[in-house]
Design a binder for these strands. Structure first.
Lengths: 208, 208
DNA sequence: TAATATACATACAAAGATGTATGTAAGCAA
DNA sequence: TTGCTTACATACATCTTTGTATGTATATTA
């Protein structure tokens, strides 16, 4: 069968991306060949080359599937300042919990995170991805910092530390949490207590 | 030239490992071939195959170069309980700072960490490495927890949180810190403030 | 409905990488 | 000094992977 309609073609493209995700997860990005991906998607390499220039482009397509919506969401929860019913600390907590709950709900997201974190080598074309992630992190930290400043203004936290230090600490904590969460794919070590740990992390900042 | 003495041979092996480290760092583990490594070490693939079974074995040899000494050191700083001049919180702080300072001092260590964290895909033979790391982490957390318990016993920290929660929070924080530290190879974003951030993290726990 | 572009499948050539087999000169032990 | 072993280098066969070129049947459009 050849020459499908446009909708059919879009479907094939999706199938290829889904297949690539599965193959990347199983064999790592480097060891995955276009042939593997094509087979998994029940097409030939011809179809793959039609929709994507090469493996790298597939990787980026998959990545964007998760990262474009992600930052919007963080913004939503964190930056929704006006007459918020929640205090700033709870906003940060909610933002972090939201990400975890999203991961809990979506296997696709989990898989993409796993690929990005431990099934990909950041060299050459992929090195740029790292810098992009780092940049995004910076803007995240800034948002945490603003929230902590609001919390300080409302006298919710002990004035031990600067908002900046608190924001960085939270950011590193959550980075570490995400890594552990992903690596603990059996869910026995970290996943089940992730939410508690976020609450604990925030509680540590609360004035009694 | 052929047939060196035993000492010469050991030297060649080291040279191959050093070369492999450089090549892994530059091209990632997967894209590195034994030919690349041999060329970098100024030998032929014959020499490489003589000293190592395959690429995986080289990787493990490099890895052990760092991880075997590492855990000893953490133990040294953290578990050296008897009549310690430092309070438990400072011990934890010192242990974390020590690791960062070690990384600061040794380019070799930095490179190996970078390879392990962002230039290697954890599939197949490498998947086991991840589990090993996770296991080591668990024992680390236990050591933090013991230290925090001692701190609680000495009434050094507010009783807001359990020692277990504090230990996990510290562990995740430091995991995140290490990742950022390594990724920020230019040193502009995180490296220069790593020590401060560790102090801030610990200070957050201190009773005023 | 004829022409063209689309959505693939198939075939081919070239390069890369791996493992092994074989060669060889020098060290070392008896 | 002979003979065995070590520490490699060289050569070869095989498999994989990639990119591209070509074929082709069907949508789409004018």
């Amino acid at each position: 069968m050849v020459r499908k309609t446009k909708e059919d073609a879009e479907l094939t493209k999706r199938r290829i991306m889904d297949a690539a995700r599965a193959v990347f997860l199983r064999r790592g990005v480097s060891r995955s060949t276009l042939e593997h991906i094509a087979t998994e998607a029940n097409v030939t390499r011809g179809a793959v080359y039609w929709h994507f220039k090469n493996k790298t482009e597939i990787f980026h397509a998959i990545r964007e599937q998760v990262f474009l919506p992600l930052f919007d969401k963080v913004d939503d929860v964190l930056s929704h300042v006006p007459d918020s019913s929640k205090d700033p600390l709870s906003q940060i907590e909610a933002s972090l919990c939201q990400t975890i709950q999203d991961l809990d709900a979506s296997q696709t997201q989990r898989e993409i995170y796993e690929i990005i974190m431990i099934k990909c080598e950041y060299v050459d074309e992929f090195a740029a991805v790292l810098h992009q992630i780092l940049d995004n992190c910076s803007s995240l930290v800034e948002k945490y910092e603003l929230a902590y400043q609001r919390a300080q203004a409302k006298n919710l936290i002990a004035p031990k530390l600067s908002a900046h230090a608190l924001a960085l600490d939270t950011h590193l904590f959550f980075g570490g949490l995400l890594h552990m969460w992903i690596k603990d794919s059996k869910g026995t070590q970290f996943r089940h207590q992730a939410i508690e740990m976020i609450k604990a992390h925030i509680d540590l900042r609360r004035k009694l």
